[in-house]
Simulated scan of single mutants.
Amino acid sequence: MADFEIRPVTDGDHAQILAIWNPIFRDTLVTFASVEKTPETLADYIDSRRARGREFLVAVADGTVLGFASYDQFRGGDGYVHAMEHTIILGESARGRGVGRALLRAVEEDARAKGAHTMVAGISGGNPGAVPFHAAVGYEHCGRMPQSGRKFGQWHDLILMQKVL
């Protein structure tokens, strides 16, 4: 039995999400983005996804947010309305506990129920642990885009993986 629950985000979760996410922007290659979110930009991010029918989920244990996941359309245009890309971020205490798998399964189920056919993982080459994680849950390697992202003054590869839902 899991020692956490997966549920939709609430406004009360925002501060904990920022505490997990902003160090990822600032200090890691998990994402190529480096601009930290503010309470306002996080609220806008969540609201805009929900306005398009995309859920934003959190994993919570004893009132503490362990991580979160969401998804949105992979690319713009009507030809891609059934192709989604997810975001999944875990706090350090959540790693190795099945939280990532549970969050990913939950966003996949939500996306599938809303008509998505495929889910894409865009993985930073500087986040090598994400590749075996995604492979273990059924994602297949689709390609590598060399030197597609820039962070910390260096170019980094983007690895694409995909799962048909």
Rank of each mutant, 00 (worst) to 15 (best):
G67N: 09
R150A: 00
K37C: 02
F25P: 00
R75M: 13
E140T: 05
L66T: 12
A136N: 09
K114W: 01
P132Y: 07
G98L: 12
K114T: 09
G100N: 09
G129D: 02
I24Y: 13
Y139F: 13
Y80L: 13
G129M: 00
Q147P: 00
K114I: 02
A136P: 01
L103A: 07
T41N: 05
H156V: 08
H14A: 05
F56N: 01
V35Q: 10
A19L: 03
W21P: 00
G53R: 11
Y139L: 08
E55A: 06
G115P: 07
T31S: 13
R97M: 11
E85L: 12
N22A: 03
V120Y: 02
L57C: 07
F133N: 04
A19M: 04
A94E: 14
E108L: 12
V58W: 10
A61D: 12
A94H: 15
S70K: 05
Q73K: 12
E5G: 05
V137G: 02
H14C: 02
R97T: 13
W21H: 05
D47P: 00
G149V: 03
G98W: 14
Q147L: 02
S70P: 09
F56I: 03
Q147T: 01
K163M: 07
L103P: 02
D11G: 03
V131R: 15
G143S: 01
K151S: 02
R54F: 14
A102F: 11
M1L: 04
I89K: 08
G98Q: 13
A43V: 02
G91V: 13
V164L: 08
V35C: 03
V81K: 15
P146D: 01
G76E: 15
A116C: 11
V164C: 05
G96E: 14
V164I: 10
D110P: 00
Q147D: 04
D3Q: 10
N127F: 04
V60M: 04
R26V: 06
G138Y: 04
I123V: 14
V99A: 12
K163D: 04
V164T: 07
V30K: 04
